[in-house]
Simulated assay, not measured.
Amino acid sequence: MTKSGYIGSYTKKEGKGIYRFVLDESKAAIEKVETGFEIEASTYLARKNQFLYAITKEGERCGIASFRVENDGELVLLNKCLDSVEGTGCYISVSDDGEYLFEAVYGAGIIRLYELDSATGEVVSLIEELKHNYKTGPHERQDHPHVHYAHQTPDKKFVAACDLGTDRIVSYSFNENGYDVAAISEFEAGFGPRHIEFHENGKFAYVVHEIANKVSVTQYVNGHFEEIANYSTLPEEFKGESKLAGVHLSHDQHYLYISNRGHDSIAVFAVNEKGDELEFVEIVPSGDEFPRDFNITEDDNYLVCAHQEGKYKVTVFERHPESGKLSLTDGQHHAAEGVCVIFD
């Protein structure tokens, strides 16, 4: 049996933009990696039904490209909305109803809101481009706001935006007129919140902090995130440079996986039944350099990881459902500058 997916990439060196890969589960290995669509700076992807959305730019103009995914996985370009000159994004997601797209822009410290046509898949317009203006943290990388994530909350009331530069999560309500601030949650100075993974019960969320290399277990209530505890994603004896990156829960909600760039590893934590506590399981090498993102197959049997640097390997891990542990099974294929992994 095979599963297919896409890898988004930088295009600063050898990256092509969007790659398509096929995973052969019978061999626990990647069957092939090919260029899915050559497009500039497609550093994050989002899938909604038969449509795929990608960050892109042309010269100074930045925004989103939309595609229709054909039955054979081919991508057909629908349109582009390049209505900003404030820099390319680093994260995108689509609202549950398919009518809005949220984009986080790290460099400029802004969050964008787009209108989508849920029937055709096209990006209709850029509704708003909102700049963060909060007190920054003490770390040298927190020179100004850096929005790194924007995603709808499980209650579907808000979009939560992680600001690495200001140690905050800002929750917004949104509509056809734009964003309105609904709640602000602050974390310890210098932590640098990057991404959020929500438990399926909607009551707890796991906030990963890029600068501190920690994950916070938080209670989520009506746009607010309150920290319960935090855990390091690195070995205690490690003293080198590392930057936390991707985070994903297994679909059974029993294990949390977090990638470390620099230490070049994936940390594994067990999640208790309630969702409010983590227990360390293991940290395993990712198989190459700078593992910015990975993803887990829907059946929870395999994890596929892309690498932004080194040999750009696409590594495959067999996942052991009972223990959550990972075993490296493949690393023969490559996706240059790969930084985002999604499955069909």
Rank of each mutant, 00 (worst) to 15 (best):
N272F: 03
G178L: 01
H199S: 08
T88K: 02
E318I: 08
N133E: 10
D117M: 00
K156G: 03
L75S: 11
V281R: 12
N175R: 09
A245Y: 02
Y53P: 07
E58K: 14
Y312G: 09
E34K: 13
F191I: 05
S250Y: 07
G15K: 07
E282D: 15
Y114W: 09
G338V: 13
L45Q: 08
T166D: 10
N230Y: 14
F187K: 00
A41R: 14
E227P: 03
D344M: 10
T120K: 03
E241W: 01
Q253W: 07
E129K: 13
G36D: 01
I211H: 02
A160Q: 06
E122I: 13
K80A: 06
K27N: 10
D96M: 03
E60Y: 06
D264Q: 05
V339K: 05
H209E: 01
V207E: 02
R20E: 00
G15C: 09
A41L: 10
Y206S: 03
F204P: 08
G246C: 03
L244K: 03
E14T: 14
T166G: 03
N133I: 02
N71D: 15
E237R: 03
D83Y: 11
I266P: 09
F269K: 00
V105A: 14
N79S: 09
L126H: 10
L23I: 13
S242L: 01
L75R: 05
V281S: 09
A46R: 00
V221N: 15
E322H: 05
E226H: 14
C90L: 07
L45A: 06
G36F: 12
T35C: 09
I266A: 08
N133Y: 04
E298R: 11
A189M: 11
S216V: 04
E237P: 03
F317V: 02
V221Q: 15
E60S: 10
D155V: 04
D180M: 07
Y231L: 06
Y106K: 06
D96A: 08
K214E: 12
G15E: 04
V85A: 12
D97P: 09
G15A: 06
L326M: 07
K135Y: 02
M1T: 14
D293L: 02
F204W: 13
G59C: 10
E273K: 15
Y220E: 01
M1K: 10
E99G: 11
K48V: 01
L326C: 09
P321K: 11
K274E: 15
H139L: 01
D300Q: 11
P138Y: 01
K32H: 12
S84G: 12
G137A: 04
L256I: 04
Q50Y: 00
E103K: 09
E277M: 12
N272V: 05
T329E: 10
V124Y: 02
V181C: 01
V22F: 11
T315E: 00
F280A: 02
K57H: 10
E197R: 01
L244A: 07
E337C: 04
V69D: 06
T136C: 14
Y231T: 02
E38N: 01
L249D: 06
S4Y: 08
F174H: 06
F225G: 02
H333F: 15
V268S: 06
N213G: 07
Y149S: 01
G109E: 15
F294P: 04
S95G: 12
K27L: 13
